[in-house]
Design a protein around this nucleic acid. Structure first.
Lengths: 136, 136
DNA sequence: GTAACTGCAAAATATTTGCATCCTT
DNA sequence: AAGGATGCAAATATTTTGCAGTTAC
């Protein structure tokens, strides 16, 4: 079972340690992006510092991405398998003003934006805010 | 001269104190969004706490808005006069990966996004990243 | 055995709160 | 005089760093 997590980590060139597998598993179990505090809370006992470093590693290896939904705390979420979080990659997130959750909406298509000349876009990050499907 | 700043503050129901006029003036003088440190640096001597509170007041009165461009530090910028930062308001920002500046691009039109049913959008925040006109 | 990861402690930063004082009306 | 704003000090919270011990290969 944990084999699949190991494989995911290895595919991103991350050494699959016990801690990292746990963090990855925790992130996988979420339907929304979580912040450091939520993550810490998912474990009985966990070293905050290690979580910081784990997230930082995941980030640099593009296994996860972070979103600021404007609430002040940065949220983390898994990237899709085929997401390299690189140039031209588009992230759409939805932040619910009612339940406070932030969801990744990878499947939303973004129409091209009309930019002034001389501006070259490498990445687009979009945060929508409103009321989510659960809060209706 | 400062009269105009006072008027701007009063229009938003903010008591136009000396400090606030200075902060507003400082923000007006920027062509890009700045964070707290930059703001503090614009003054010879300034109490960080007061700046915090001033920004918070401005935010709550919708005189300025804040953007997270993903660099970790939240940037602040004046809203346009006709911007109420409320529902349906769309913010487009451009973060240059080369000079690090974040610009407000109020004039960029955003085409409607195709969202799943049951999600009601109240606000849209967009951060584009790439190379700005100065860095070419 | 080596290189990298972890956990604890501590340092450095950043943000918030309390309160006495000072302005403005 | 009264309400709110300011500045200082202090409390909290957050993030980073150092290092010794452990783990994985």
């Amino acid at each position: 079972m944990n084999d699949s997590y190991e494989k995911i980590l290895e595919a991103r060139n991350i050494k699959p340690t016990a801690m990292r597998i746990l963090v990855l598993k925790a992130l996988s179990g979420q339907d929304h992006a979580i912040d450091l505090n939520e993550l810490e809370f998912l474990f009985d006992q966990a070293d905050r510092v290690t979580l910081y470093r784990t997230l930082k590693t995941f980030l640099s290896k593009k296994l996860i991405h972070h979103i600021d939904d404007g609430t002040g705390s940065i949220k983390y979420a898994l990237c899709r398998e085929d997401c390299d979080c690189g140039p031209e990659d588009t992230h759409v997130h939805f932040h619910c003003n009612y339940c406070g959750n932030t969801y990744c909406m990878d499947y939303v298509r973004v129409p091209p934006l009309l930019l002034p000349e001389k501006f070259y876009v490498e990445e687009i990050s979009i945060v929508l805010k409103g009321k989510c499907e659960h809060c209706n």
